[in-house]
């Protein structure tokens, strides 16, 4: 079942450079939807038409990455970040540019790790001078961390689960859903990590009545001072609030009721740091009633993130259950 997820992970899609994964998703879901197209910013928008109220479901296709900005005299590539990677975890690891060139993320020798800053990092592609470096990696080339997916003990370990796990969940929902009284738009957004950019324009176009996004959220279980109540493997997280949104009460209540009646394990999420696509969707035009479904994850934005397959399956179940029943009430 997780073959599709592996394929998604293996298509690099740093923020702003989502073209390849967009094509893959489009091909993957075409047979199951009424219409699918790619909009101006690169969002993939798929419609399953229905008579009822319009629901927009989102997951972002982009992952955190790096972009080359300069090559110094010794041939080291200087870069900036796309989104907010946990760069400390990237040091000494492999980095892959979108044009196929690989390198190692280095850190200036004489600098103390306690004063870590990305400006002291560089990417070493193994050449000795500026000209060779620029010939291999022109300025403006994007890169992602290089890491392979591992699955063991009901856990998935990989880079980019934020938010390819969400993308995967929506693809599974599209494939498995029998039908819905609502009009459904599945939006695979771009540039979420840069400030929810794709979601903003997509929501303007779609004008949904309700929206739900599927993203990851932090967990408490690896540090004692983390105030979150969410734990890995304890159920799909239903979002109450993150930094960008206080979810609509009726929407969160509906999600909770749906989970209860479907006997689907769930947890409640209050995320202090971090926003998701609904942060911009809910204030589009005259406003949209929004909620969020989140997958608990450890080590978000590092080289290797971890989620639990039970949580993933429960999320798919919850969404299918909700959409097949339909959302009809909210005002």
């Amino acid at each position: 079942m997780f073959n599709t997820l592996e394929k998604l992970i293996n298509i690099p899609s740093p923020s702003g450079f989502e073209e390849n994964i967009a094509e893959f998703i489009k091909m993957e879901i075409s047979p199951f939807v009424d219409k699918v197209y790619i909009d101006i910013l690169g969002n993939v928008i798929a419609r399953k038409t229905g008579m009822g109220a319009k629901i927009m479901l989102t997951a972002h296709m982009d992952e955190i990455g790096l972009i080359s900005t300069f090559a110094d005299e010794q041939g080291f590539i200087r870069f900036s970040t796309l989104g907010c990677p946990d760069l400390k975890s990237f040091v000494s690891n492999k980095v892959s540019f979108l044009n196929g060139v690989n390198g190692i993320l280095g850190y200036e020798k004489k600098c103390e790790l306690k004063d870590f800053s990305f400006e002291k990092c560089f990417i070493d592609i193994g050449v000795c001078n500026k000209e060779e470096a620029l010939a291999l990696v022109p300025i403006g080339t994007a890169a992602v961390i290089n890491s392979s997916i591992i699955m063991q003990n009901n856990k998935i370990i990989s880079k980019g689960l934020d938010d390819k796990i969400g993308v995967f969940i929506l693809i599974e929902v599209i494939k498995k859903i029998a039908g819905s009284p609502n009009d459904l738009s599945f939006v695979f957004t771009v540039q979420e990590e840069l400030g929810l950019r794709g979601a903003k324009t997509a929501s303007f176009e779609i004008e949904a009545d309700y929206a739900i996004n599927v993203d990851v959220t932090s967990t408490r279980d690896i540090s004692t001072d983390n105030k979150m109540a969410v734990n890995l493997g304890k159920g799909v997280a239903i979002k109450i609030k993150d930094k960008g949104i206080i979810c609509h009460k009726k929407m969160t209540t509906t999600l909770i009721e749906t989970a209860k009646s479907g006997e689907i394990p769930y947890q409640l999420e209050v995320l202090e740091q971090g926003s998701t696509d609904i942060g911009t969707v809910h204030i589009s035009k005259s406003g949209v009633i929004c909620g969020g479904i989140s997958i608990p994850a450890r080590y978000i934005h590092s080289q290797n993130e971890m989620v639990d397959t039970d949580d993933v399956n429960n999320a798919i179940k919850l969404l299918i259950f909700l959409l097949e029943k339909g959302i009809i009430f909210l005002s």
């Binding site: 909009d39 101006i40 910013l41 969002n43 950019r197 903003k200 324009t201 303007f204 176009e205």
Partner: peptide, 9 residues
């Protein structure tokens, strides 16, 4: 401009 309407190049 880029983030207005349904997106602008």
């Amino acid at each position: 401009f880029q983030r207005s309407l349904a997106g602008i190049r």
